[in-house]
Design a protein around this nucleic acid. Structure first.
Length: 414
DNA sequence: TCTGGGGTCCTAGGACCC
DNA sequence: TCTGGGGTCCTAGGACCC
């Protein structure tokens, strides 16, 4: 059966949302009309561009680049701080509108969603007309613009929404692939990233059309299974379902941070690790899992990183035990070089309702009860209502990392 | 005061087993 | 006195996405 899939993508999401908020607060200038970016905090060394206005784009400012270099490109650049709670509100408001057009909406990220319109023609009419209605409702009711892509699968719908911006409805049905998608640079295809593109150039593949018609064996030889995937995509072949609720079971939980200053003492490194483990542990318990595998990531001042992991015999959701394991891993790998960033990741998850208290760790149950009580206090009074004394006057955050509350994590998988 | 943080999946090599 | 071969698990690193 032929499906009708829409992909909805907010134009310059963080920046647009901030602009709309400021206009509502009575500000006169619209950030979308001047060179502006949403940027991280430079004092704490998080100074990168998270979103940019179209005028900023004209200075070839890139998402992810340092604010320092962005300012060099455009000295009068306006930089505004991030405001995740606002983005979450805008996201929720948009998602509500999408649900008026179909019950089957898959939230893909904070600013993107897929909508299965199949069978909805009887209620909302022609898909293109419905897409205009949807787009215009978001614009008039919420104040920001979106792009809508329409096709017969998620990949093509997503490629369609990129075709022409902003505030547009684009179609990319299979019979339009040759004309609309094949002339595009191969780098613009979903899943062709900064590593794959140069490999394709060396094979004389420069456009999506080149890739679509390339020799499958050649691609298989140079790019393994990746070659088949992207060649299929270039031909518009993809058939994953729009899965509304199905939050796939989580595979792992990780938190990482760039530390406000370089860390070269073991004592400080352990504190950073502990603050990360606090968040990982809390999230793990809230998700209802215990983890067997613990992984520690260290990033030095050259920005090169390395990781070290181990699978432990027992699964745990105990902050202190996660911290002990992480410390052990850190000691084994750390040569003492100054650290700019650190991360803790746990995986190999088992549901914690089957948790067995290890015979070798009699304190386990007591500590788990303590963790649980602290979680409850922190959820009620805020994450900083209970902190460990080692962090007082340390210059380090007592709890580090976090995800937006109740937000389905995005994934690079359609 | 230059370069974030959250994910998922894949691959390659070594260890180990039969 | 020339040593297979297939399978699984483990670990590190790399690819992509927003």
């Amino acid at each position: 059966m032929n499906r009708i899939i829409m992909h909805i993508d907010v134009n310059n999401a963080y920046l647009s949302w901030e602009a709309v908020y400021r206009l509502q607060m009575g500000e006169k200038t619209d950030l979308r009309e001047i060179p502006s970016v949403v940027g991280g905090d430079e004092q704490s060394r998080h100074g990168i561009v998270l979103a940019k206005s179209n005028p900023a784009k004209k200075y070839s400012i890139q998402t992810g680049e340092a604010l320092y270099t962005a300012r060099k490109k455009c000295p009068n650049l306006v930089v505004v701080p991030v405001r995740y709670e606002l983005y979450m509100m805008c996201h929720n408001a948009m998602t509500n509108i999408l649900h008026d057009f179909s019950p089957n909406v898959q939230v893909y990220s904070i600013d993107e969603a897929f909508l299965d319109y199949t069978g909805m023609e009887n209620i909302h009419g022609d898909p293109v007309e419905a897409a205009y209605k949807l787009k215009n409702r978001i614009k008039t009711e919420l104040g920001f613009t979106v792009n809508v892509g329409i096709s017969s699968n998620k990949l093509l719908a997503k490629m369609a929404s990129e075709l022409k911006k902003p505030d547009m409805v684009n179609t990319l049905f299979p019979d339009e692939i040759k004309e609309k998608m094949w002339p595009l640079p191969v780098r613009e295809l979903f899943m062709v990233g900064p590593a794959t593109a140069p490999k394709l150039y060396r094979l004389n593949i420069f456009t999506i059309g080149d890739l679509a018609q390339a020799n499958p064996e050649l691609l298989q030889y140079h790019l393994k299974s990746w070659g088949k995937l992207i060649r299929d995509y270039a031909n518009g072949i993809e058939n994953s379902p729009v899965s509304a609720d199905a939050r796939p079971p989580i595979k792992g939980i990780g938190n990482s941070t760039t530390i406000p200053f370089d860390v070269d003492s073991a004592d400080e490194a352990r504190k950073v690790l502990l603050s990360l483990c606090e968040m990982v542990g809390m999230r793990l318990r809230q998700a209802g899992y215990c983890a067997k595998l613990v992984s520690v990531y260290l990033r030095n001042t050259n920005l090169t990183g390395k990781s070290h992991q181990r699978k432990f015999a027992t699964a745990t959701d105990d902050t202190y035990q996660i911290f002990n394991r992480a410390s052990q891993l850190m000691e084994e790998m750390w040569t003492g070089e100054a650290l700019r960033g650190m991360g803790v990741h746990v995986s190999d998850l088992v549901p914690n309702d089957l948790f067995q208290i290890s015979m070798f760790e009699p304190l386990n149950e007591r500590r788990r009860r303590l963790d649980k009580s602290i979680d409850q206090i922190r959820m009620k009074y805020g994450p900083k209502s209970v902190i460990r004394s080692v962090f007082v006057n340390s210059g380090l955050a007592p709890i580090t990392g976090g995800v937006i509350e109740d937000f389905k994590m995005m994934s690079s998988i359609l």
